[in-house]
């Protein structure tokens, strides 16, 4: 749970069992991305993974349940997403898309799914690091690094000169804390071709 949670754990869990819809935005913002990421890694279909994540969250209102802790709540949501994803795979026989998953259905990979939960958690934290940058730098990181646009495209999209972009990139690198992000961003080079 993020430290800035607007609800005390007990209050949140009580509202869930009462079917209170006002906590939906908070729950959605907290779990949605992770659930899609998790499901997407299994089924390789983003639209379907989005459906699964939404349905897993909505289930809290379909079947109001009392959870002892938010950890249990999270486990419940991921388990719903896991089962729905595996059902989807079995159902649609997208065998070639997910050979690894279907090759070992038993061990099924709960170990792999566990790693995925951690992966999604970590991405939320790393993504937050980018999101917290001042806008001018955040945009540069998003366009160049996350979306992988060329420098020319990024400068064009932002309506700034290449030099300006280069400067912003340099400052963004200074602002970022993760060595890996710094390095990834630093490894993007400017391809200016003329003749």
């Amino acid at each position: 749970m993020p430290a800035d949670a607007p609800y005390q754990e007990e209050e949140l869990l009580t509202r869930i069992v009462e079917g209170d819809a006002t906590i939906y935005p908070y729950l959605f913002d907290t779990y949605y991305n992770s659930l899609v990421y998790f499901s997407l890694s299994i089924i390789k279909d983003q639209q379907q993974a989005e459906d699964i994540a939404v349905d897993s969250l909505v289930k809290l209102w379909q079947v109001p349940t009392r959870f002892e802790t938010t950890g249990k709540l999270r486990g419940y949501l991921f388990t719903l997403a896991r089962n729905a994803s595996l059902n989807y795979l079995k159902h649609l026989r997208v065998r070639e898309r997910s050979e690894q998953v279907l090759a070992h259905p038993e061990a099924l990979i709960d170990a792999r799914l566990e790693a995925l939960v951690v992966e999604a958690d970590l991405l939320r934290l790393v993504y937050q690091e980018i999101a917290q940058l001042p806008d001018a730098y955040r945009q540069v990181v998003e366009l160049l690094y996350v979306e992988g646009l060329s420098a020319a495209e990024a400068a064009d999209r932002l309506g700034i000169s290449m030099d300006n972009l280069r400067q912003r990139k340099g400052r963004a690198i200074k602002e970022l804390k993760s060595g890996l992000l710094k390095k990834g961003l630093n490894d993007i080079f400017f391809s200016l071709i003329f003749f």
Partner: peptide, 16 residues
């Protein structure tokens, strides 16, 4: 549903 699949309390400590 099997709700005990993931031990979230433990897993949640790893990412930070």
């Amino acid at each position: 549903e099997d709700f005990s699949t993931f031990n979230m309390e433990l897993l949640a400590l790893v990412a930070p």
